[in-house]
Nucleic acid binder design. Sequence first.
RNA 1: GGAGAGGUGGCAGAGUGGUCGAAUGUACCUGACUCGAAAUCAGGCGUGGGGGUAACUCCACCGUGGGUUCGAAUCCCACCCUCUCCGCCA
Length: 423
Amino acid sequence: MHDLKWIRENPADFDAALARRGLPAQGQAILQLDARRRAAQTASQDLLARRNDASKQIGILKKEGKDTEALMAEVAAFKDQIPAAEEEEKRLGAEIDAVLGIIPNLPAADVPQGADENDNVELKRWGSIPKFDFTPLSHDQLGANLGLMDFEAAAKLSGARFVVLKGALARLERALAQFMLDFHTQENGYTEMATPVLVKEEALYGTGQLPKFAEDLFRTTGSHWLIPTAEVTLTNLVADSILDEGALPIRMTAQTACFRSEAGSAGRDTTGMIRQHQFQKVEMVSIAHPDQSAEEHERMTSGAETLLERLGLPYRRILLCTGDMGFSSNKTFDLEVWLPAQDRYREISSCSNCGEFQARRMKARFKGVGDKNTRFVHTLNGSGLAVGRTLIAVLENYQQIDGSIAIPVALHSYMGGITVIRP
RNA sequence: GGAGAGGUGGCAGAGUGGUCGAAUGUACCUGACUCGAAAUCAGGCGUGGGGGUAACUCCACCGUGGGUUCGAAUCCCACCCUCUCCGCCA
């Protein structure tokens, strides 16, 4: 959500930033609506003020035992205008909200201009790409050969884009999540949280998934929606609050199942575990002071990188261009892990600074000691990491010629003595 | 699911139709006293929005949404949430 006041004062900057996102100018249209809304507000408030004043007089007169007939008649004369005036104000307000609610965050100044992922900028690479003296298999082939990854069983239960893991692979998924959580909580300053995965519409509005991206989500027949990421629950924990400045930054992490309809992804990544309707993810969320959010963004991304490094998985860091960034983000780093069978890097983490965009939508503010006004916090979120994709990366990068998987040393203590998963 | 109680400012807690955005206490901030602190005293102390260069002023908000009324924290209706007891249950 954007600041109307700011748009009023900087309509050209607003439109220029929208243009960077490939969107048409909307400043003028918004400001016209805004002017109409404020006029309606003034009109309706004027009526209310007159009514309040008259009512107060009536109260005083009655107390003095005087006649109030004349005044009451006077109020009645304009009172019936009030509902219409309020209605008009409400209608225009809703109209503005509808327009503003689907405008994405504006890109930060240092985000490169671009149309799509081809214009993203690679910032760094870590690790050496493993060389195999055999043809490396894909994770789903490896999993099937091990007899521990079953897409047909999942299809029987749930249809396409689900998986059943078994034995050591189920254990590996659990080990990875636990390894990640232990790092975040013990070394990275995050507090572990366990949150619902079913949420109300308001929460999804707060983080920006709604109203625009309803088709990407699953919803219940009741009024709940399934979260596509724990970013939704963790970030919305500070919704409708005024935090003490000293409490910032607030760092939270959670492992949850994530649910995505993958509408519009038909035909992409149809085999294997890359793109599932349900997957485990460890998420990091930071609620930061505006002055420190850039620093926090770097810190968060580094944390995700550390996990990949400890797992010995080659990756690169990408700075997303304006055309590839998510709706709520003003700057996003993606981490992409090397997948030998695909012979390319694939996204395994996305770390975004949303600035005050989400905070405005969910009214998450802070106040310093002695400050007169509240300010909006900055919200950041990042995967640390997508557990399913990390499992894929471990399988493919640590595969051996006999089809066995060597377990990265960092996971040994989590695997109950298993150091190699054999067919 | 059944029965009952309740949702008021950071917290506690008054307020059942009228100068109530809301007593009082506490916490917090400022000042006085003090070498300093405590105690004490005085003042201040919610959020969002409109108008105004400003001083300032207006509107809304007492769980949420409707309604009654000249006027609603207070009355009526619906919903949500919390607590207690009963039933069921991972």
